[in-house]
Amino acid sequence: MSPVAHEIRTQQPDDAALVGLMAGGDHEALDLLYRRHAGWLTARLQRRCPDPDVVDTAVQEAFLAAWRGAAGWRPTGEFGAWLWTVALRRLIDQIRRQRRHGRDVSWEVVGTEPIDDGEFVLSLSDTTVGAELARLDPDLQAVMVATAVDGLSTGETATLLGIPRGTVKSRLSRARKLLRTAIDEEER
């Protein structure tokens, strides 16, 4: 191990430094990144797909993509955010593959209980848009989260949620319309 690599490791290296080490073929850097990020990644993907095998495959492929693409990675954002985007797309690929075998493993959208049970939960939706979004039908929320938050395309959202593209589009426009009306009323 080079002195620089040693120094980086003993000082709780940040993600960008670890990616740099991975680009040089350092397996320990991959190991450290995995231990740091695999937990939350698996947990969040699991929320969007009930099949643990599909989730595990997506997690594995995302880390391998990071390993193989380390040399070309440009730190324009957090590594975690990049990893999430890659993993989510791998998850969608896997869901598409499963569906070809007749297995439905799409996002189980559940909820919603009334959100005004206590200050704490209400404070989570700390903007007008957030609060109004949380009041929408859970199916509409799911479409908004997939497109506006995770930045997925209409087709990817359709695969993730297990609904036709047309439904994604109509739910999206309905959600936008409801949000606009709600915010207009708030302002008045």
Binding site: R44, R47, V109, V110, G111, T112, E113, I115, V121, L124, S125, G130, L133, A134, L136, P138, Q141, A142, M144, V145, V149
Partner: peptide, 12 residues
């Protein structure tokens, strides 16, 4: 898992 995707996302 009962608050709907928007709140869950905010918590995440």
């Amino acid at each position: 898992n009962h608050l709907g995707p928007a709140i869950e996302c905010r918590i995440e």
